[in-house]
Write a protein that binds this DNA or RNA. Structure first.
Lengths: 166, 166
DNA sequence: TTTTGTTTTCAAAAATAATTGAAACCAATG
DNA sequence: CATTGGTTTCAATTATTTTTGAAAACAAAA
């Protein structure tokens, strides 16, 4: 397998995985393309590289910037924008955690808190109260853990992983 | 908020969260419905409870069984099947990890291994090799960690969480 | 064997999500 | 200011995913 084929496979696979996780496939492919690019790319290069339209490229580049996974670079004397991906994988993981926590975990937690109002005057509906309480406890733990992870640095990350796998 | 309204909110929210994570919304709603149900439900009760068709209910109940999140129960003397959800949240988390790891992490890891063939005769394309190597290392760590998690019991789970949040 | 109650299947329809492309916009330059 | 090179927007289209519902399959009971 040569580099070109390898890149191709990587981009495809990264896109597939993302779409399994509810993330736009093309967004992930743009991300992958930038990850394996030796230098920052222009919107046109992204369009060509993935055979997608200008609108699509633009939308997904913006989304990636919004997620904090891609940055813009302006070359002096040039008018067009260049895009490059954050390549420190620990930063990448952290950005993804920050984004998904905010958009998905926190709203769920909010609902669980609301619903916990019911839980207060419990035994009426045993299983409902128990389940909500359990999920809420678990989610709160997850929330706190993620907060810690977000604040932690890369070496700490390795340390905890090492601990976990013994 | 009364219990009915609480259940409703919970089911909606569980479904929303699932669809954010690339899981069929209705599947998650069926799961939520069964989680908060005091007893096992029939397919018809699920259909009524969520206003969905028989085919849809059947498909998603099967999928939940496949994920190991729901079980079938046959009441003696009765012809129809009853369904109930696993309510031990640690088991639920574990089943989800098992399923998603197999379907999503492992295929990605396989591709990374293949692509690592390119990595072998590296410096040709610096960034590609570095990125692939980093992601591969990270994925392998995640894979091992999840294996440990899967084997671990609930108390261990709490312990590690406790450690993480200090 | 036939009837009856139930589950399963799957092609077609509906709903949802992603993509296109051309027009509008923006700002640097002549 | 008008032009040029580039970015953004978004209604319409296209692709993908989900759902329906009726027919087929199954299996217990008559």
């Amino acid at each position: 397998m040569d580099i070109q084929e390898g890149k191709q496979k990587f981009i495809e696979s990264w896109g597939k995985m993302a779409s399994d996780w509810g993330i736009n496939r093309t967004m992930a492919q743009v991300h992958a393309l930038l990850l394996v690019a030796p230098d920052a790319l222009t919107a046109d290069e992204v369009m060509d590289g993935l055979s997608i339209s200008r609108g699509n490229a633009n939308m997904n580049l913006r989304a990636l910037i919004d997620w904090g996974l891609v940055h813009k670079k302006l070359k002096s004397g040039e008018r067009k924008e260049y895009f490059y991906a954050e390549k420190d994988m620990w930063k990448v993981v952290r950005q993804i955690i920050i984004h998904r926590k905010k958009k998905e975990l926190e709203p769920m937690l909010k609902v669980l808190d609301e619903v916990a109002g019911v839980e207060a005057n419990c035994p009426q509906s045993e299983s409902f109260c128990t389940v909500v309480k359990d999920i809420r406890t678990l989610s709160q733990k997850a929330d706190k853990t993620l907060d810690t992870l977000i604040k932690a640095d890369s070496s700490w990350f390795s340390t905890i992983f090492y601990q976990m796998v013994r």
